[in-house]
């Protein structure tokens, strides 16, 4: 693998991961606010959640349209350090705090964020040493393709759920005739 390919892969991976994280956090921003509150920052939880989401989206956009710029990767490093710090802080509190890193899910803040830190820093470092050289339009086209793939993925999840709910609705008896739906035979 040449260094430029490594840079493209590294930066592409960071864009994909932080894009999914940011979009998922938009959907469950209250969960992120609660997480920050439980970490002891309840006074600034709401603006802090908005800052985290905004920073992730900013980093993703900047890495896409300005692939050789250093500051977006610096922002990623800063976010990764913040997440690891939050993980260590949660471990120190000795309380299970929901992560909310990728929206819903029951994963707790802790060692996972600390272990991910070298991965994010490594990818950022690889991209920094061999920065990608795509144009802004190429970056935007890639971002659009990634976003459309995410929309398709979400749509599949929605259709799966919809089928289950529709099946349940079709077989649910008229609510006005629900008495003795299941009674002892004897």
């Amino acid at each position: 693998m040449t260094s430029s390919v490594a840079g493209v892969v590294g930066q592409g991976a960071l864009i994909a991961v932080f894009l999914v994280a940011a979009l998922s956090k938009i959907l469950t921003h209250r969960a992120l606010t609660q997480t920050i509150s439980k970490l002891g920052f309840s006074a600034i939880a709401r603006p802090a959640a908005l800052i985290v989401i905004g920073a992730e989206l900013l980093a993703v956009t900047a890495m896409t349209i300005m692939p050789s710029a250093t500051w977006p990767r610096g922002l990623i490093a800063l976010l990764a350090l913040s997440f690891a710090g939050a993980g260590i802080h949660a471990l120190g509190l000795g309380e299970k705090i929901k992560c909310g890193c990728f929206g819903g899910g029951g994963a707790a803040l802790g060692w996972r964020q600390v272990l991910y830190l070298p991965l994010w820093l490594g990818l950022a470092a690889v991209a920094e040493f061999a920065p990608p050289s795509w144009s802004a339009d190429e970056g935007l086209a890639g971002l659009a393709a990634l976003l459309l793939a995410l929309v398709a993925w979400k749509l599949l999840a929605e259709v799966r759920l919809w089928r289950v709910l529709r099946g349940d609705r079709m077989v649910t008896p008229n609510p006005t005739r629900h008495e003795n739906a299941e009674v002892p035979a004897a």
Partner: peptide
Amino acid sequence: VCLLAVVVFIQIG
């Protein structure tokens, strides 16, 4: 396209 995709993603979500 990107902005619309983001909006659709959030709506489906």
